[in-house]
Design a protein around this nucleic acid. Sequence first.
DNA 1: ATGTTGACTTGGA
DNA 2: GTCCAAGCCAACA
Length: 111
Amino acid sequence: MDRADFFEQVYQVVRLIPKGRVTSYGAIAQYLGTRGSSRMVGYAMNGSHTVQPPVPAHRVVNRQGLLTGKHHFASATAMQDALEKEGIHVKDDQVQDFKTVFWDPNTELTL
DNA sequence: ATGTTGACTTGGA
DNA sequence: GTCCAAGCCAACA
């Protein structure tokens, strides 16, 4: 943590997401201790392409497991394609077996 | 400095 | 179970 900005904190958590797993903005926000700033998590992702290493934003979806932010990627199919490449099945912008591939930082990182 | 927006979440009808 | 509305925090204009 140190003097990492809110954005950096989000980036680090997202980078900690294991391959083939996905998480939700709220989970990250809650991990940061600010559930209300769930929107900021996605907002931070907006600048994810400006930091390095690039954060796997494609592994971050909303609580429904829906690829809400896919439109913010280089291509509308970039996110889904990336997820499928990770081994995650996506149908109609909806992550299949979401609860199975769901990765909660609070739980997995054992806060 | 103030106001609005935003890749969300939860709660109530 | 589904739909509508309110809430919350931080960055951007």
